[in-house]
Each structure stands twice: as structure tokens, then as C-alpha cells.
Design a protein around this nucleic acid. Sequence first.
DNA 1: ACTATAAATTGTCATATGGTTATATATGAA
DNA 2: TTCATATATAACCATATGACAATTTATAGT
Lengths: 104, 104
Amino acid sequence: MDSEKLAEFYKTLGDKTRLRILSLLKVDERCVCELVEILGISQPTVSQHMRRLKSVHLVKERRQGRWVYYSLDGSLYPFFHSILESLPNPKQELNVSERKMVCD
Amino acid sequence: MDSEKLAEFYKTLGDKTRLRILSLLKVDERCVCELVEILGISQPTVSQHMRRLKSVHLVKERRQGRWVYYSLDGSLYPFFHSILESLPNPKQELNVSERKMVCD
DNA sequence: ACTATAAATTGTCATATGGTTATATATGAA
DNA sequence: TTCATATATAACCATATGACAATTTATAGT
């Protein structure tokens, strides 16, 4: 991978909201509307972030009815698991019942 | 590390020029004036990049006379070596004699 | 076909970024 | 001290970015 593409990749990681999204996707796939609720930002903003994450193949999408579910897709990056490990735990992002589901 | 600081770290990596600098420092420490010549950008621009790289502890500096030599300092990051490995080879950045020195 | 809902796109705005030139600071040599 | 050189900082500018509201597109259900 050349500097240009690699920089694009890191630039995509260089945003607090996108890191939070990746943290959440570590736990489970999510549709846009779920992310909107959990993150407390507007739907278009989430969609833009997902587009960007998708453009560097950090996530992939799965359409199911009206919903588009996003999940991690780091297959391109040999060091992707290192990056994932470095992400903060998403527990605090989730509400009580979700957190319970994650941690049980 | 929280999302905020981690994003700052990746944002610092998210620039082509800074990645080129890190590639070069993989080979050996460099002073600012060397980087100016190799990279073909102005001295203030290099200094700004070095300040930013230093601010997230990706490089450290060593003053020697009038020169400030910068070298890698990824001690903070457990996955730093993974990131370094992903950097493109800096050979093409260097001129013939430098390349010879690096590769011999 | 009509309605409702999920997601994507567009337009706009404030701020951040990466480059430049000009200037200031720091160090070594004469 | 004076001069030369290496580096840092400041001021500026064009472009990129991340947020929002408004709109469009897509899909499911009635």
C-alpha cells in the first residue's frame, strides 16, 4: 500500500466518532438507526461516517429489508486486529440493557 | 487510551508527508534540514510536521549543536511495530548515494 | 398506488489542516 | 559582539472535514 492510500486509511481512523463506531461494531453489527441512537448524532452524519469507513474497507454492509447493517471488515489490513485491540471498550456507549447483553 | 487521544494519534498518521517522514526515520534519525531536502518541502512545513509527530510521541528529538535530530519513539503504542511494518519502503525517497548506504 | 420508515445524498457552515512566506529564536564560529 | 545557519513560530490562504437540516431514494406494508 502506498503512502497515499495508507494515509487515507489512517485519516479515516482519525476521528473520535468513527472510532466509537468501530468499537461498537466490535461487539456486533449495527444498522444506521441503532448507531444514531447510541451515538446521539444525526442520521446523515452517521451515514457519511459509514460511507467513509466503507470506502477504505473498514466496514462492510448487509442489507436486510429497510435496514442496512454494518459490520467490521478489516480483511485488507494485516495489522487490523492490533488496531481493534487498541480501541477503547464500548461498554460505556451502550445503555444498561445492551451492556448487559454484551457482558453476559 | 480514550477515543479522543487515539483519534489524535491516528489523525497524526493520516497524512502522506508524515508517513513518508516516519518511513525515513525507520532507516535512521534525521535532522530537519535533511528532511527538507529529501521531501522537497519548505523547512517550516517540516518543523510543523515534526511538532505534531512529537506531540503524540511518535518521534523524539535529540539536539546536537545547531541541529535537531528526530527519531522514532513509539514506546507508548503496543501496536507501533505493526504500524511501522505497514509503511512503504523509503528507498525511493532517497537519492542514489543515500540509497546505497541504506541498502548495503 | 399510497404511506411510513430507513438510509443516502445535497447544500451549507464553522473549524481544522497543510502548505507557503516572513520573522523570531538558538546555537556555533569568527 | 557579529554573522551565518538550523529550527521554530506567526500570519495567511486554499482546501478538507464533520456537523446539521432539507431532500431524495429505497424498501415494506396496507
